[in-house]
C-alpha cells in the first residue's frame, strides 16, 4: 500500500516537472499571438485560484475581488513612474493590497453569503471611483501608462509569459500547501458550518481575514504584471467585474474546491472564447452565456471535481468488495 502511494507520488512529480519544462520552453516555438493567449491563461488561472480559495474552499464569494487586481496594477504604475524598478514596485503594491484587504476584511467578512458578495462589489465600485477622481495621482478616468520597456516586443512577450507562468505555478503550489494544512482544514470548516467551526476551536475571524489577504496578495501581483504587460491601464478596465465573472466561470468549469480545477478551467474558457471571438464574433457573448448554463447544469462539480468523485466512488466500491471477500 505504501509502496503504491510512493509510486503514485513519483508519477505525479514526474508529470509536474515535465509540464513545467514544456511550458518554460514553449514560447521559443510558438508565435507572439499564442504567447499572449497563454500569458492571459496563466493570469486568469491565478485569479481563479484566488477566487477558488475564497469561494470553493471557504464559501465566501468575493465578487468584487477585482479591486485587488486594480490596486496592484495602479500602485505598481504609480511607483514605477517615480523611477522604482519593477521588482520593487510590484512587491510594494502587493504589500499595500494585503494591508487594504486586512483593513476591509475585518468588517466585511462579518457578512455572510449574498451580503458579503455584494459588499465587495460596492467596495470595488467605491475604490474605482476614487481612482477615477484622484486625477493628479492616478491619471483619472483616462488611465495611466507604465514606463516603456526598451527591448524588442517578441522578447517582452516571452518575459511576461514566463513571469505569469511562474506566478500561476507558485500560486497553485501555495494554495495546494494551504488547503492540505491545518489552516486549510480551518478554511474548509468555515464553508461547511461556520458556527460549528467556531465552537470547535477555530478562530474564524482570523482564518477568514488571513485567507482573504492571501487571495488579495496573488491577485494584486497578477494585476501589477498585467499593467506592466499592457503598458497602459484605465480604471474601468482593471476594476472590471468581468475579470471576476470570468474567473468564477473558469473555477466552476474546472471544479470548485480543487487545485487543478481553476487551471484547467482557465485553459478551456480562454481557448473557447478565443475561438468564439475569431469564429463568430457577433455571437460570442451569447455563446459564452449558453456554454456557462450548460456546464452548470451538466457538470456542476466541474471537470476535476467530477473525475475525483468518480475515482472516490470506485475506491469505496472496491474496498467494500474486498471486505465482502474477506468475510
Amino acid at each position: 500500500m505504501i509502496a503504491q502511494n510512493d509510486r503514485k507520488l513519483n508519477i505525479n512529480i514526474i508529470l509536474i516537472v515535465a509540464a513545467l519544462i514544456i511550458f518554460i520552453l514553449l514560447p521559443n516555438y510558438i508565435s507572439g499571438y499564442y504567447t499572449r493567449i497563454f500569458t492571459a491563461i496563466f493570469m486568469y488561472a491565478t485569479i481563479a485560484q484566488c477566487i477558488n480559495l475564497m469561494s470553493g474552499y471557504m464559501g465566501y464569494l468575493p465578487f468584487g475581488h477585482v479591486m485587488f487586481f486594480g490596486i496592484g496594477a495602479y500602485i505598481s504604475a504609480i511607483l514605477m513612474k517615480t523611477g522604482l524598478p519593477v521588482f520593487v514596485a510590484i512587491p510594494a503594491a502587493c504589500f499595500c493590497a494585503i494591508v487594504i484587504s486586512i483593513i476591509l476584511g475585518f468588517p466585511v467578512l462579518r457578512l455572510r453569503g449574498h451580503y458579503f458578495a455584494i459588499a465587495t462589489i460596492g467596495m470595488n465600485g467605491a475604490i474605482m471611483t476614487v481612482v477615477q477622481n484622484a486625477t493628479e495621482i492616478t491619471g483619472g478616468a483616462r488611465g495611466t501608462t507604465f514606463p516603456i520597456i526598451t527591448v524588442p516586443p517578441a522578447v517582452v512577450y516571452k518575459y511576461f509569459y514566463l513571469a505569469m507562468f511562474g506566478l500561476m505555478v507558485i500560486t497553485s503550489l501555495v494554495m495546494n500547501m494551504i488547503v492540505n494544512s491545518k489552516f486549510g482544514f480551518g478554511i474548509r470548516s468555515i464553508k461547511a458550518n461556520e458556527d460549528a467551526a467556531n465552537s470547535m476551536g477555530i478562530n474564524t475571524t482570523f482564518t477568514k481575514v488571513s485567507t482573504w489577504a492571501i487571495a488579495a496578495m496573488f491577485t494584486s501581483i497578477a494585476g501589477g504584471l498585467y499593467g506592466y504587460w499592457m503598458s497602459f491601464i484605465a480604471p474601468d478596465e482593471v476594476f472590471d467585474l468581468m475579470f471576476i465573472t470570468n474567473s468564477i466561470i473558469m473555477m466552476l468549469i474546472g471544479g470548485a474546491g480543487t487545485i487543478l480545477g481553476p487551471i484547467f478551467g482557465a485553459f478551456i474558457v480562454e481557448t473557447v472564447s478565443e475561438v468564439a471571438w475569431s469564429g463568430f464574433m457577433q455571437y460570442h457573448l451569447a455563446a459564452l452565456g449558453i456554454a456557462t448554463i450548460i456546464i452548470v447544469f451538466f457538470i456542476p462539480r466541474g471537470l476535476i471535481g467530477t473525475i475525483t468523485d468518480k475515482m472516490r466512488n470506485r475506491r469505496i466500491k472496491l474496498s467494500k468488495k474486498t471486505e465482502v471477500t474477506n468475510v
Binding site: 466561470i249 456557462t292 452548470v296
Partner: peptide, 9 residues
C-alpha cells in the same frame, strides 16, 4: 455561486 453565474449568463 450557481444562481449568480447563471443570471450573469
Amino acid at each position: 455561486v450557481f444562481t449568480l453565474i447563471v443570471t450573469f449568463a
